[in-house]
Write a protein that binds this DNA or RNA. Structure first.
Lengths: 202, 202
DNA sequence: TTATTGTACATTGTCAACAATTACCTTAAT
DNA sequence: ATTAAGGTAATTGTTGACAATGTACAATAA
């Protein structure tokens, strides 16, 4: 197989799809997810669907009650929301420290590519794609800094934060903010990276 | 049915068992978990086992590779470990704030009961039970303060922290530290609660 | 009318068989 | 001896059928 050609298990694809739907608000909080329905929709049996529902439940996007099923989580209380922001900042600040002297040309190339997608998505008003690119950008840094381990901690926090945003407050200056982060990373200036991240996370 | 008599699904019981084994160190990092083996051991089919493995993977205790299987996670790096401590303190400090004026007599009764178990477990040198009681204590507070939502965020952090402890450093004065927390809660003194929690989390 | 009980239906939980993928071991060539 | 290729066994992924549970509604009694 050609290197770089990666195989994505169907269950991950289904999970991505549902995550997008939830974050984009197409599945409103409280919406009940029927296993058989999803199975038919995605053309698989209920087995993989159950895996996906369990996964999204652990990520905080769904709430599952025994023998009843899964439904989309309600919005976070303001208190929890600000706690999430706080924790996410902590994690990414931590990542910024670890990244000192670690970024390679390939990394910057990858980040630039993600930012291009971000820009395009923003210009075409595809806010779902904007959100995905935004998450992808930060995820790249978090993974680079702390590996899958850190991503696993960080991911549920971001998802829960994103769930609470309306599509309207997609930041006009999101691209600039992210470019500021990349610039600070290029300068290998941890303090500036941290500051740029804090400004971007809200 | 009498209230308080709760039904625990077998899959949760299996998950609890495996969690204990991992945290107690009986399943060393890197140990591969065989689905069929676990199924036979617990007398169920592979279905529920797969659910459990996926769950523990999301909690960070296991690492799963596609088409290969699940194995016990490796220890955290010192950097990640201290980040975990930091985040856990943030969460429980947040909980402390929310608990102001919220604790009832029933709550204190429940906490005292957990502490009794803690004491007994410690005296009989059952360190697995000590750990469970310890986690149960903090979990009670976190859930009371922020509901299942907050527990879902907090739980993986605690589990990953606990995994890295040897049984030897089971604190001699764990009981006292927890009594201090309860006392501060009784006095409804948020600052003291926070301080007591911070001292206990390490 | 209201509360309760029983019944039918829909949905989730579990299971065992089958398919797909990976890991291991044997064999052969350099 | 080392490495590569092939085949076999073990393991995970998926499926459809069946069991267990919960929900909704209708019938009944207070």
């Amino acid at each position: 197989m050609r290197p770089g050609e990666k195989i994505v298990p169907i269950r991950d694809q289904i999970a991505d799809q549902l995550r997008s739907d939830i974050i984009a608000g197409e599945l409103a909080p409280g919406t009940k997810l029927n296993e058989q329905g999803l199975a038919t929709r995605f053309g698989v049996s209920r087995g993989p669907i159950r895996d996906v529902l369990l996964q999204l439940t652990k990520e905080g996007l769904l709430v599952t009650r025994s023998n009843v099923g899964a439904s989309v989580s309600e919005m976070l209380s303001p208190e929890l929301q600000s706690l999430m922001v706080d924790i996410r900042r902590r994690i990414e600040s931590h990542a910024a420290k670890q990244l000192k002297g670690l970024m390679t040309d390939e990394d910057f190339e990858a980040l630039d590519y993600i930012l291009d997608q971000f820009q395009t998505a923003f210009e075409t008003r595809d806010f779902t794609a904007v959100t995905k690119a935004d998450i992808e950008f930060h995820k790249y840094l978090v993974e680079k800094a702390g590996g899958q381990e850190l991503v696993n901690l960080w991911y549920p926090v971001v998802l829960r934060m994103r769930m609470n945003y309306k599509r309207i407050d997609s930041p006009e200056d999101g691209v600039d903010e992210h470019r500021a982060i990349v610039d600070a990373l290029r300068a290998d200036d941890t303090r500036r990276v941290t500051a740029a991240l804090k400004a971007n996370i809200r």
